[in-house]
Write a protein that binds this DNA or RNA. Structure first.
Lengths: 205, 205
DNA sequence: GTCTATATTGTGATAGAC
DNA sequence: GTCTATCACAATATAGAC
């Protein structure tokens, strides 16, 4: 009796994570995942029955990695500006640690949008009240009169885009130097916040 | 002698465009492209030799669809704020007409980043002088002191993201109603410009 | 140029020994 | 549980008739 009971399963998941997130469902090969895990192809089926099942496991895990931050943003009682600052910092931090997940999730949801309905069953409910809160702050003269959805989507865009377009941006603007680009992404934790704040908050004289 | 000489080739390209852009290189099937074109699978190889060659044709065309706008942005002699306004309007317009190309190009370049070096050989050269012009306007006190690359990337993010994340955004914020989302995208031609202007331009008292 | 038929290789999945 | 060997079918590509 050793701790290898579930060791193979973990090795497989780890390998599948890497390959699926890098190549996507269609681009990934079971053989490549087996090689990466250092085990045999048949074992993949022994533990996960099919490629699709294995993919589901990886995708769900990747998707959920980002949900807690969004829940936090939607549910807390802080004023919007403080929520925003927290969200940007935390969200970009998670993406720096998992830089390929955003592109992966985006692509797979584009290929299979019906999956999204399933995943969001228990989560979208709080969205309307959050938009209402934002609208209230607009009515109170704290924030400029802009469609709250535009604000939300702009915030997400500024956080996520530098990760999903990484190859292009890194090549065009940073001479394809990963180190420099990582430093740039780090800066964005504050620069994105300042950018949005300047864009939507009304200056008090 | 009829005008069908190149008709088959055009039918194939049109079908390949649709299937490749929708499913990507790995997800697309030659059979599906043939069916879509209403011709036989063998004809695809007669005209384009291989799946990869056919894909190259589609990808290059898609990629180049967005280059003229970027060239315009980089090369014209207008002050930055006017360039920006023009760019956003034109760029979003093209994406509304070709909503799936941004995600397609992004995904394929992520899968195959070395392709980008080839494609950009004659284009990146003007980037440094453009960033210099932007830096000058910062020095002149027209624009807030922000890293010019952050400004560029933020502008691109705000334009492109709503298209690459369409399935998610449309579902979460718009009850999956395409009509409403299209109207929303239309609004962004002005709202994105106002957003950026508020964020980076210094108000003269 | 366009088709049918077929070759060839790739890939997910299973059988069965150990 | 883990492996080797193999199946079954999918997918790209080609040969050859018309």
């Amino acid at each position: 009796m050793n701790d290898n009971q579930t060791n193979a399963e973990q090795l497989i998941l780890q390998a599948a994570r890497k390959i699926f997130i890098e190549k996507g469902m269609e681009g990934a090969r079971m053989q490549e995942i087996a090689d990466e895990a250092g085990i045999n192809k048949a074992l993949l089926h022994y533990y996960f029955r099919s490629k699709d099942k294995l993919f589901q496991a990886v995708f769900l895990e990747a998707f959920q990695k980002f949900l807690p931050q969004i829940e936090m943003l939607l549910k807390s009682e802080l004023p919007f500006i403080q929520k925003l600052e927290l969200f940007i910092k935390n969200y970009i931090s998670i993406m720096i640690e998992n830089p390929y997940i955003p592109g992966f999730v985006l692509h797979e949801l584009t290929q299979n949008p019906q999956r999204l309905a399933e995943l969001l069953k228990n989560h979208v409910v709080v969205m309307p009240e959050f938009l209402t809160q934002l609208q209230n702050e607009i009515n109170n003269g704290v924030i400029k009169p802009v469609d709250p959805r535009q604000i939300m989507i702009n915030s997400l865009a500024l956080c996520i885009f530098p990760f999903v377009a990484r190859p292009i941006i890194q090549t065009v603007f940073f001479g394809n130097d990963a180190e420099t680009y990582n430093a740039f992404l780090e800066q964005r934790k504050t620069s994105v916040y300042n950018f949005i704040k300047s864009a939507i908050f009304i200056e008090k004289p």
